[in-house]
Structures are given as C-alpha cells and as structure tokens.
Design a binder for these strands. Sequence first.
DNA 1: ATGAAAGCGCTAACAG
DNA 2: CTGTTAGCGCTTTCAT
Lengths: 342, 342
Amino acid sequence: MSKPVTLQDMANRLGISKVSVSKALRGQADIGKVTTEKVLALAQELGYRPNILAQKLSAKHTRTIGLVVPKIAHHFLTQAIDAIYISANEQNYEIVMMVSEENAELERKHIETLLSMRVDGLLISVTEKTIETDIFHQVVDSGTPLVFFDRVIEGQGFVCIRSADEQGAADLVECAINKGYSSFGHIGGYQQVSISKHRYHGFLRALDAHGLKPAEKHLVFGGFSRSDGISGLDKLLEQDSLPEIIFAVTYPVALGILLRSRELGIRIPGDLDLVCFGNSEYNNLITPSVTGINQPAAEIGTLALTHLLQQIENPEKAPELNIIVPVEINQGRTCMGPGKKA
Amino acid sequence: MSKPVTLQDMANRLGISKVSVSKALRGQADIGKVTTEKVLALAQELGYRPNILAQKLSAKHTRTIGLVVPKIAHHFLTQAIDAIYISANEQNYEIVMMVSEENAELERKHIETLLSMRVDGLLISVTEKTIETDIFHQVVDSGTPLVFFDRVIEGQGFVCIRSADEQGAADLVECAINKGYSSFGHIGGYQQVSISKHRYHGFLRALDAHGLKPAEKHLVFGGFSRSDGISGLDKLLEQDSLPEIIFAVTYPVALGILLRSRELGIRIPGDLDLVCFGNSEYNNLITPSVTGINQPAAEIGTLALTHLLQQIENPEKAPELNIIVPVEINQGRTCMGPGKKA
DNA sequence: ATGAAAGCGCTAACAG
DNA sequence: CTGTTAGCGCTTTCAT
C-alpha cells in the first residue's frame, strides 16, 4: 500500500541530490566511495526498485520487443515462443507477447499497442486470416524493425524466417510417390497465408515432376486446426471417391483426419493413408504415428530474434530477406505404401 | 526513423496547447466540437500513437499484470496461459509474461522486474524448485496483489487457486483399488512443491482407507517432466520387484514411463499398469491412452485472473484464500484391472 | 472552452 | 566529486 520509494525519497534521507543517488546506484565512477556505499545500503534497506517506466521514458530504447502470435496452444508456436523467451532473456531483452487469436483485427490492435509501448522491434507470426498488410508497412516505415517468422508475408520487402515449406512438402510427397502412391488429395489452408500456399505448391510440384495431378474434388482448403481436418475429411467424403493418400497442411489437421476416420470406421493406414506438414512431441506415442515433417521451431524462433536484434542494433533499414530453414521427414506409420496396413 | 509524433507536435501544428490536444483525443466534454474534430483529423493524418510509457508513468495504475510461469511448453500451463491472455484482453488489461524456466533465481529476478514495471498485480505458478518464499511476502507487503495458480504456496496467507490435487489423486487411486490393485508405486515430484505433496498425500490417503501401504522401494521423487518419468522407472527397476501399478505425478512423467517401458519391453498395461495426474489433448490418440485426471486449466487460469482483478479493484489486503477446483477422472487403457491387457 | 503550471520518476548535459 | 537544469510525453489541477 505504501508508495514505492523513489530516488528523491532517498536523496532527502541522505541530504544529497537525487542525481547523485541515481549515479551511485548505477555505479558511475564520479561519485565518492562513501556516498555510493551509503546509497546502496539505504536502497537495500528501503527495498528501492527503479521505476522501469520512468527509465524507459527517458531512454531512447526500451530493450523490449513485441511478439505477436496467432495462438499459443500450438506445438510449433509453443516451442518457438519458448526459444524466443529464453534467448531474449539471455540478451537482456524483455518480451511482451500478445495473442491475436487468429483474428486479423486483434492482431492489428495488438501491433498498435506494442508500438505505443515503444518496443524496439516486433516479431510476428500472422493469423490464418491476415490479408491487409498496410499495418506492417507502417511499422517498418515508422522505423521499427520487424521480423516475420513461420507465417510470413513475402515479396513485400520484409524480413522473413520460415521453414522450407515448399521443399519439405515436395520431399514428403515425392517420398510417397516413391512408395507407389499415385492418387493424392490435399486438405490445405487458406491460400492467402504463406505457409498454405507454399505447402500446396510443393505438393503440386512433386506430383507434376512425376506426371501426376490431383483431382479437383480431392482438394479442400480451410484452416489449420483439428476441426478443419475433421470437416475437411467430411468434405472429401461427399465426393464419389477418396484419394489413396492425403497430404494435410498441418499436424493438427492430420489429427482431425485421424479422429474422424476412426469415428467413421475408415482405417488409416489401409483404407486411406496420410502425410502432413508438422509433427508433435507426442507423435511417436500415437497410433498410428503420422508420417510428417519436423520443423526446427526453436531454431526459427531464435533466428528470428537474432535477426531482429541485429536490425535494432544496426539502424539501417533492412532489405528484403527470406531465410528458409530446411526441414526433415519424420517417418511414421501412415504412409507405408498403397494398400499396406501398418 | 522519424521520431514519433507527440501531443506537443500536434499542438504546435494547430496553434493550440498540448493539454487541449490531450483532452480532445480522449473526448473530454470541455473541448469545443470543432477543435476536437481538427485534432482527431490531424492525429489520424500524422499517425499519432500515444506513448503508453508516459501515460502509465503519470497514471496511478498501469492496467498491466505480470505473469510468471515455470515454462510454457506444458499442456496444463499452455492452456491456462491461453485463458489468462484471452480474459485479460477482454478486460482491457495487458499481460507481461515471464518464464522462470523452473529456476527459482530467475523467478525471483522476473518478479523484481515486474514490480519495477509497476504491474498492478502478479499471477504466479512457482517453479518445481521454489523454496524461499520471502520474495512473495515482499510483494504482498508492498501492496501488490498476488495470486498463485496451479503450483501454489499454501498456509502462508496467500491467495491460491489450484486443482483438487489431493482429492483427485485419492479418487484416482481409489478407482484403481476398486479394480483390484493392491500393490502401488509412485513416481512423484519434489515434495516442497504443493502439487507434489498434495498428490502424494491423496495417494497415501486412498491406500490407507483400504488398509494398504506402498512399499518404500516403490516410491521415487523427482521433477515433473518426461525425463523424470524415464529416470523414475529406471530407479524402480533397480529394486527386486515392481508394483502392479504406478501413480505418476504428472502426465509427462507418465509418458516418460510409457516410453521407457516400451524400450525395455515392459508391457503397459499388462506387466505394469499406470495412472497419472493430468492429461493431454493427444491422449485419446496415444496407445495406450493413459488413465488420468482432467484438470480444468482454462478455468483455473481465468479464475486466477478474476480474483487478481478483484483484489486490484478492491485495495484491501486479501485474506488467505484457497480455491480448489474439482477435477475428474479420465478413463484410459492403462488401468483395466490387475494383469488384464487392454 | 482553453491553457499554464506542476508532477509522474528517471537520466543526460553541463556546471561548479 | 556533487548538484542544477532540462527534458522524456502525458495527465491532472486550477485558473481564465
């Protein structure tokens, strides 16, 4: 209930000026040893805590970086966030994270707030519905460094760090082709989102390289979550036939497919096979484990932070940069070859 | 690169005082309609963003609450954090989250920082190693409302919101007893942490009620993560016999046990059965699904925030309060009765 | 309806 | 070595 102790309070008690107190506290060389010690002792005694708000207000930078993510209960993001927090802590930066809840308007609002907080830079993974990009340009134009990670916005001059979505998808599909599959379906994400587009393109590219083509009716597009996998499979089932194998845009979507197929008595693998982009720490405990892609989430998070800090310390405006981190296939049991059961 | 626009800048442009600008921006009634409109238009044009630091510095409260968690890649916490963020957003509060990484010193440092930021209140889930509690008392004594959730500190006058750890554990063990088990082991957490103690006590209570007692050699205590489950099972295996069933203190520990047993060719269920406190969204996809406890993570998070805000708005010092949210058993396939395979 | 003055707590610049 | 002055950007009196 008591008001926090201020520099002035301490100055009064010691009969010196608050500037001296401030200097002593920060160990500046130009203050007498005795004075410094007296100040330190009093600070200790009174439980003095500097007001960071005031410190930041009078400083040029805040050593705070804003982090905007679409959600946190998401395996990739959770890991990336974790890594970002840990490295920020090492570098003595604070993170202020805001959750956009896959809502583009909220995302915008959060960015405004973060700018109002005068963060030194912004780390953003966009929502699955983000279309307008003017706010991001505003950010950069106003001189605040910005780095996108995972869900990025490419071709507009930004710095982006992401998984090798297209290549990974292509490799995965190629791997399935080599096992003998020829009829592919895709349950994909909204096409305005970079990762959806890349993964879909990788899928098409690999098929094309083998003279294959997916049937229109075997393509479904929606969101990234389990429920989208469920509804995606339902949509596929409205058609007169199923593909041999489905490529799901995310791991949660694959799980949705798994769950729904189980409810409907469709055997995976066997009746229908499955690969997806992504993985989870639980995958090797799941039956069947899904054949998918490991994304280096922590690495991407750390890399994004590193590049952001670099921009912050190096105030020239960064040119467009696209860093694409390679991914690897994780062999599960949902892609064993056409018709084969695990 | 351009300096942010300030009230003064706008005042100069309009030839009025910055006070008027400030008032107009906030829609105070005592400013002329035309002036207000001119101000609003200019603000729009210039992309004015209030400096939140300055606003907070001159305000009594910051509408910011500090959140300290031991980690984020943890099913319960992820969900609780998510809920906290969402309700805070609804109430127009900002969350500043810091991750203590299960490190008591870092936890302390983060709390200091948060106090220095003049957060209006603190939400804390302690590390698995937190022993010293003086810092928490300092917080409360200094008049900053504090609410513990999940991993709480009881009996020291704090406000705590947690799952019914003891009752849940007792119910779970009771349920196993009713299925015919009589030989129980426990892979538990450090006993200074509230949830470890409660779950262990519930375990003992249920056994005791049926005249049962665990063998010393079947009790292992450590941390809360998968690796602790692995090493815990290894320790148990050094003994001359295994219990029929193990009660694991957390879901990750149970997974560790599952993984290790699989490596060693110990069948679960069958050779060894298993129950645990906790669950995950993947549990019904895992083989075998673990019989465990559903914790209302979102509810606990929201409740914690609600109580904190209540304290913030109601400045009397809150008396000790322990809210215990009931949990429920989730039937999996690792506790089907002694000797039965799933 | 508008603004001058003072203050939030701290730091940088410059004197003494 | 220590202190004065000024300023960070905003809000709250309190006059006018």
